[in-house]
Design a protein around this nucleic acid. Sequence first.
DNA 1: CTGAAAGCGCTTACAG
DNA 2: CTGAAAGCGCTTACAG
Lengths: 365, 365
Amino acid sequence: VARGCGTGPTLAAGPVWGRISRVPSPPRTPTIRDVATAAGVSRSTVSRVLNGGDRVSPEAAAAVTEAMRRISYVASHSARSLNTRRSGAVALVVAERQERLFEDPTSSVLVRGLNELLPRHDQTLYITLADDERSQRAVVEQLRSGLLDGIILTAAHADDPIFAMLVEAQLAGAAAVVAALPLGAGRKLPHVTVRDQTASRLLTRHLIDRGRRRIGIIAGPADTSGGRRRLAGFRSAFDKRTTAAGVTSFVTVAKDYSAYEGERAMRELLTRARDLDAVFAASDLLATGALNVLDRAGRAVPGDVALAGFDDSILARQADPPLTTARIPFDRMAVELVRLLHARMDGVHPEPVVLDCELILRAST
Amino acid sequence: VARGCGTGPTLAAGPVWGRISRVPSPPRTPTIRDVATAAGVSRSTVSRVLNGGDRVSPEAAAAVTEAMRRISYVASHSARSLNTRRSGAVALVVAERQERLFEDPTSSVLVRGLNELLPRHDQTLYITLADDERSQRAVVEQLRSGLLDGIILTAAHADDPIFAMLVEAQLAGAAAVVAALPLGAGRKLPHVTVRDQTASRLLTRHLIDRGRRRIGIIAGPADTSGGRRRLAGFRSAFDKRTTAAGVTSFVTVAKDYSAYEGERAMRELLTRARDLDAVFAASDLLATGALNVLDRAGRAVPGDVALAGFDDSILARQADPPLTTARIPFDRMAVELVRLLHARMDGVHPEPVVLDCELILRAST
DNA sequence: CTGAAAGCGCTTACAG
DNA sequence: CTGAAAGCGCTTACAG
C-alpha cells in the first residue's frame, strides 16, 4: 500500500514535535518510489511503464498504471529531463516589440501550424517575447540550460544580439532555427524563407501590366530581410522598357510593419506624387493603413489607385476591397521549421529551405 | 586546466576504436565538475558561486567565474530544478481559440505587465494556447511535473475542463491563478477580477443621463464572467423610473469577443430597433465591429447613435470617434496576479482580488 | 571559507 | 520479464 503520498503525515518526514504534531504535513509529491511500493514492483518496472511499457508483463503494467492513478502520480520533469536530455518545450521567440505580436496576424498562422505539429513529437509550443538584449540573453540561456529543446526565432532584425548568441549556442549543440532569412550574424543558422523578391517583382509587374504608370512602394524596415528583398523585387520590375513607357516609381520605407506606419507612408507618397495610381505595400498590415488614408483622401481603390499587399493574412481577405497580395505558405513554413528543428536536435546541420509565394489577385488591383 | 569541455576527444568518454578514433567526439556539455577542475576548487565551491557567492573567498569566486566564462559553462536546468524545485518558467495559458489571441489587444496589455514583473523574480513568461482538453491537460501536467512554476489562466470559458484540472493540481500544491472571475469548477482558484458589473451599470446610466432612450447591448458570451456580469450591470441600470421615462432596452449576445460578432450583433439590433439611439458593447473589439456597421448604415456616432465599449484597449482610442469605455486596470491586474502566484508558490491560499474599473468618457457618447 | 558526501527523482545498462 | 545499482548534474547540510 502507498505511504502517505501527500494525504497524511509522512512517517519519514522528520521529527515529530510533541503537541505540535498535528501541523499539516507539507504535501509531499509522490515519487516513482511510492508508485513502486503501491504497485508491489521495483522502481525499474515503474520506469519502464512510464517509458512505453516494453518488457513489462501485462499484470505488472496494470498494477503500476492503477497505482499511478490512485496516488495521482506525475513524473518529475526535471528528473526525467536530467536523464533524457529532453524537455519537450519549444519556444517561438518573437524578437519584436510586444505590441506588434498582437497587431500583426502574420505570426498567428505560424503559431497555428506549430501548435498542431509539435504535439505529435510530444513537444509543446511556448511563445515568448524577447525584444531587448536582456530577454534575448535569458531565453538563449534557457535553451543552453536544457529548459528548452529548441528555439524558433521570428520577427528578428539584422542587428538583434540574439543572432550571435544563437550561433554560439549552436556550436555547443543547441537547436535553433529561424523563420525568415537571417541577416548579419544569423546567416549560419538553419532557416526557412520565401522567395519574396521574386513575388514582389511579379506583383509590381502585374501593376504595370494593368496599365499603372506612377507606382509607389511602402517598403518594410531595411533591417529585415522582407524589407530589403521586397524592395529589391519592386525595383527589379523597372527597366528601360518600362521607363520608355513612362512608368515612374516612388519609394518610401516604413519604420515597422504597423498599420500606423502604413498610414504615415501613404500620406508621404501622396504628398510626393499626387497622381500616384498604384501602391505596393510590403505587408498586408501596411496596406491596411494605406487603404485608410486613400479612403480618407477620396481616392477610389482600385479606380484611382491600385493597391497590393504581401503575406495574404486574414487582413487581405477582410479588407474592402479585398487585397491583391502574395501568399506566404505559412503552413509549409511550419512543417519545414519543425523538420529543421528536429534535424538540429539530432545533431545534423540542415540546409536552408526556400519556398515559393503564390500571387493572389483580388479586387484591389 | 580544463579537460576537453567539448572541444576535443574526452579521455573518459569511453573506449577508443583504433583507426576510427578520429570521429569527432560528441560535444559534451561542460558540467560543474569541469568548472571545478578548471578553477582548481571543489564542486561545492562552484555551486556556491552559482548561487550568489556567499561564503566564498573573492579569489575562489574570481577563479570560478573566469573558468565558467572560459569553457562557456551553462548550468543544467534540470539538475538545478531537481534540487531547488523551481523552474523559473511561468505560463500564461490562453484558453481561447488561437485566432482570438491575436485579434484582441486585451491580452496584450496583460502580457506587457507580466513580462515586466516576472523577470524581477527570475521568472520568464511563456504564452501558450490551450483551447481544447488535450492541450489543457498537457499544460496542467507540465505544471504538476515541475516544468512550470505556475500558471496564469486567461480567457477561459465556464465549461473549460482546465478548471477542474487546476483545482485538483492545487490540492497537490500547484500554483495556478486566474485573470478574471472563474465560473463553475474554477471558483476555488485564486483570481483577480474587476467590478465590471458596477462599471457596466454606470456606463449604461451615463447613456440614459445623456438623454438616450432606446438602448441596446451587445453582450459577451454567456459562459464568460464578463459576458454575464456586464449584461447584469446593463440590466440593473433600468428600473421603474427609467421605464416611466420611456427608456427601452434591447439585448443581443455575441458568440465570442470578435469584431465579426460585433458586426453581426449590431445588424441584429438595427433590425429589431431601427430607431436605436445608443449601444453598449461589452468589449471595445465588439464596439469596433458595431461602429463599422453603423457607419455603413449611415448612422452618425454619436449624432444618431451613442456607442460605448469596455476594456479601454488601444482600439477605443484609435476608433473614429474615440470610444467611451470602462478601463480595466490591466497593470494592476498583472501586479496582483504575480502576487497571488507567488503566494501560492509559498503554499498560501490567497484571497481573491477585486479591482475597480474607471469610466473613460470620449466623443462616441 | 572549503570539501567530501548524501540526496533530489528519474533512466538505463546489467545480470538474472 | 524483473530488480539492484550506477549515474544524470546539480544543491545542501555537515564537519572542519
